[in-house]
């Protein structure tokens, strides 16, 4: 029960910052996701209540946009860029290698909660293709070969 009240308080704080106008809904959800790394259900319900937006509309927005996740994500978000430049430079091979090495499918989180693997639609770093962004850091000109070492380093950092 304690968790719910803190989530509610946090949502209140965020809603206050952006204002209760319906147009702030996306910004509010972005801040909640920043806070929790995903959108907890309690938070979505609280948003609906506090902003006076029907739950169905909150849920609609939360599931429509790519950046939102309704499931907890790992410590590091591994985003394989699937932009055109990265695709023609073989980014699909990087995705396959990451799937094998992390033993998860795209969209899943490793058992140790370290990594969540996702595909992203162009990071705008086309000059460095193919790129993978891990925990916000862009790894340029990545080859399959370097993946095990990079993952090891992140694991070491904990």
């Amino acid at each position: 029960m304690k968790k719910a009240t803190t989530i509610e308080a946090k949502v209140k704080e965020i809603v206050k910052k952006h204002g209760r106008d319906k147009s702030s809904l996306i910004a509010v959800l972005q801040d909640i996701q920043e806070e929790y790394n995903y959108l907890p259900k309690e938070a979505l319900l609280a948003v609906g209540e506090q902003m006076e937006v029907p739950s169905s509309r909150v849920y609609e927005v939360a599931t429509f946009y790519n950046t939102f996740s309704l499931n907890p994500r790992g410590r590091y978000l591994v985003e394989v860029c699937a932009g055109t430049a990265c695709h023609v430079q073989g980014s699909f091979n990087l995705m396959d290698r990451l799937k094998r090495d992390l033993e998860i499918e795209c969209g899943e989180t490793t058992k140790d909660n370290m990594f969540t693997l996702e595909e992203v639609r162009c990071l705008g770093c086309c000059s460095l293709a193919p790129v993978v962004r891990i925990g916000g850091n862009i790894h340029p000109y990545l080859t399959q070969d370097e993946i095990p070492r990079i993952l090891r380093n992140y694991r070491k950092q904990g």
Partner: peptide, 20 residues
Amino acid sequence: GVSAIGFSCRGADKTIGPPF
């Protein structure tokens, strides 16, 4: 006037129903 149902997801995955 209750908005009990709505969409979830988008594209081919889009469905209609109550939230969650």
